[in-house]
Nucleic acid binder design. Structure first.
Ligand code: MN
Ligand code: MN
Ligand code: ZN
Ligand code: ZN
Lengths: 162, 162
DNA sequence: CCTTGTAATGATATCCATTATCATTATAAA
DNA sequence: TTTATAATGATAATGGATATCATTACAAGG
């Protein structure tokens, strides 16, 4: 008996932007939803290759572009020369900020201080709109520093240039 | 009478990292100090070429790397595929955040809410240090949205991909 | 000033992430 | 099952940034 075709419920968020829901799209979205990491296109390729060796890197790039444009994922630039991606819920309930180690490149999500941050962000958005005529749509906040491992002079990065 | 060689006072911030203070270094640093914009290597090249046609793009990249490592400038990634640079005072008195138009790519500096922001950032840093063992060194905050021009459907970007 | 060792430069080649092209494949509707 | 074509994947091309290396010019000492 052939396995029933799986269609992830999040597929609906893409709407009319696409005509067909394919294996690569299912697999890439699924991986991003399940992982806690911030993956690059190559990392996604490496992760899915054992499962589906026919999937090309080009499709990964294209699918990531699609998911990003559709708002299902967020594209992150940490400055190491490659974009990273993470899943983003439709209701923004998983909104968070980043803590980046400048030595090993590790990225931590954090969502403490929701209240104060929200207040500040909202207030700032108002002022910026009034003073500069901007319509604020989103924000990025990131803290840069040294993670525990790198503070204790321990581990070295495997990321070139860190 | 030969013109006295100019050496920018900020040169001292680089310290022993270099042995010679050269024309390109003087010109690039000077340009970044004087401009209000966030320039790419190519933009710097274009700006300085009329003044000094012998300066190569490679030197621009190398000098920017030097200035960044020395803490005189800040490297910014806005996601359009090229790094941008801005001058950074030693006393951090010019610390600010960014307002980025997602349509035309315009970048605005803003420094409102110094007090509230400072409080929040300090508080956040403490918690992050305690909970995640991070030593915070810096932070980036950016707001994304539509600038006045792009809200009114006016100007289009000259930046490819926006 | 002049000389000189070498840091810095710039032309060029190379790297590498991302995008463009295009023939082939496979989805989904009929 | 058929079929129109969206989507894929191999490949080439693009473009920002870096590596190489012969040449230049800074600055210290004479
Ligand atoms: Mn995250
Ligand atoms: Mn700025
Ligand atoms: Zn680390
Ligand atoms: Zn704009």
């Amino acid at each position: 008996m052939p396995k029933k075709k799986e269609v992830h419920p999040e597929r609906t968020r893409i709407g009319d932007r696409i005509a067909r829901w394919t294996i690569p799209r299912e697999d890439i979205l699924d991986l991003l939803i399940r992982t806690q990491q911030h993956l690059t296109a190559k990392e996604i390729y490496a992760a899915l290759n054992p499962l589906n060796p026919d999937m090309g890197l080009t499709t990964i790039y294209r699918t990531l572009e699609l998911l990003d444009t559709s708002g299902l994922i967020r594209k992150i630039y940490t400055g190491d020369g490659q974009a990273r991606f993470e899943y983003k819920r439709a209701d923004h309930a998983d909104h968070h900020h980043h803590l980046i180690c400048s030595v090993c490149g590790k990225i931590l999500n954090y969502r403490d201080f929701e209240k104060e941050e929200l207040d500040l962000v909202r207030k700032t958005e108002e002022i910026l709109a009034r003073k500069h005529g901007f319509l604020i749509r989103d924000h990025n906040i990131e803290f840069l520093g040294l993670c525990g491992d790198c503070r204790s002079g321990g581990k070295r990065s495997t990321i070139p240039g860190r």
